[in-house]
Amino acid sequence: MNRRAALRALGTGLVASLAGCSGSRIDGSVTSNETPLALSHEYATQATYSGTRVFVDVTAENAGNDPITLEERVPNVTCTFLDDAGETLHEAGIELLEPLDAGESTTLEFPLTIDTEDVTRYELRCEWVEA
């Protein structure tokens, strides 16, 4: 492969990896948590043929001393994507489906596929809901 072809291939790959990615940083926080789950989170963007996707990956660890059995009540983690004015772009909730012993963790993923250029932050809430 000659030098020009190599540079073209490298440039095409770089442009494809950046295509559609949001130009600004997206901030995230846990705004409320009434459960013993410790929530750690991060976001990522992914360019696709149809546009950009924003993913918030949440690791929920049972930081309590007792298992979460899901018999009477279940932790529900909600992710709200917001624009610069604080308006909700999208909101989704996920209930834990499997019990968690003390110290165990599970991973949750919240995707945003619309209004990805407008999102500036996300907020996480975790609350108990009836099983």
Score class of each variant (00 low, 15 high):
S22A: 12
R25Y: 11
A44N: 12
T106D: 04
A60K: 02
H90E: 04
P67H: 08
A38L: 09
G93E: 11
R53M: 10
D84S: 15
I94A: 03
A6V: 06
L37A: 01
H90Y: 06
T52L: 03
V54D: 12
P75N: 02
L37H: 00
T12I: 11
A102L: 00
L14D: 11
T69V: 03
Y43R: 08
T48E: 11
T12F: 10
T80S: 10
D66T: 04
I68N: 14
Y49Q: 11
G103Q: 02
R73P: 01
E117W: 11
R8K: 14
S22V: 07
L18S: 06
R3C: 08
L97W: 09
Y122C: 00
L96W: 00
T59D: 03
T45M: 09
E117H: 07
W128N: 01
T116K: 14
A60I: 02
Y49W: 09
A38I: 04
P75Y: 02
R125F: 13
G103L: 05
L108D: 00
P67F: 06
C126E: 07
S32I: 02
N76E: 14
A16V: 10
T35L: 06
S29M: 06
S40P: 01
T107F: 06
S50D: 03
H90A: 04
L10K: 13
V119S: 03
T35K: 06
L124Q: 11
A5S: 09
T52S: 15
T35G: 10
R121K: 13
L14S: 13
T45S: 12
V30A: 13
A9N: 13
R73S: 05
A102D: 04
